[in-house]
Amino acid sequence: MTRTATCLLATAAAAAIALPAHASAATLVASLAGANETHEGDASGTGVFTADADVDSGDLCYTLAAEIEGEPMAAHIHKGAAGTDGAPVVTLEITGPEDDICMAVEPDVLKPILASPADYYVNVHSAAYPKGAVRGQLEKGG
């Protein structure tokens, strides 16, 4: 092997090691409960959120089910760490436990969610609990 080829191989190997890992897709999960709300939530309410998110395609495919007092009025992914409230960044639909839905989400919205899911939460609102009946922090799933 020539000296030039050896140098090129070494440079390519070093560059490959130096490149940061870019995860463009991930599974996100959240267990929702009324006790997780920062205000009075539905004490007996529960829910589950599971999603596959892909930054490159902008796809968010998810299942969202909630057992809460009254009819669900709205659901969102909000920016906010545990114990804090934040603005909604994605509006969701309640799918029920057996169905899922896919929607387009701007990659600039998905990137920070995938980078730091614990800084975001899912909650479901009802007429009885307009600020949120149940809530759960996002985390990466397996």
Rank of each mutant, 00 (worst) to 15 (best):
M1P: 06
M1I: 15
T2F: 07
R3I: 11
T4C: 09
T6Q: 15
T6I: 11
T11N: 11
A12D: 13
A12F: 12
A14Y: 06
A15G: 12
I17V: 14
A18Q: 04
L19H: 09
P20S: 07
P20W: 07
P20K: 08
P20N: 07
A21H: 15
H22P: 00
A23L: 12
A26M: 04
T27K: 13
S31N: 11
A33F: 02
G34L: 04
E37M: 03
E37R: 05
G41C: 03
G45L: 00
T46Y: 05
T46G: 06
V48C: 04
V48P: 00
F49D: 00
F49A: 02
T50A: 05
A51F: 01
D54N: 15
D54H: 14
D56W: 12
D59G: 04
D59P: 01
D59I: 10
D59E: 14
C61D: 14
Y62M: 03
A65C: 03
A65Y: 02
I68S: 01
I68N: 00
E69C: 07
E69A: 13
E71T: 15
A75K: 04
A75T: 03
A75D: 07
I77A: 02
A82V: 15
T84C: 08
T84S: 15
D85F: 05
A87N: 05
V89K: 10
T91L: 13
E93I: 06
E93H: 09
G96N: 08
E106V: 13
E106S: 15
K111I: 11
P112Y: 11
I113V: 11
I113K: 01
Y120V: 02
V122M: 06
V124C: 00
H125K: 08
H125R: 09
S126A: 08
A128V: 07
P130H: 11
P130W: 08
K131Y: 09
A133K: 11
R135P: 02
G136N: 03
G136T: 01
L138S: 01
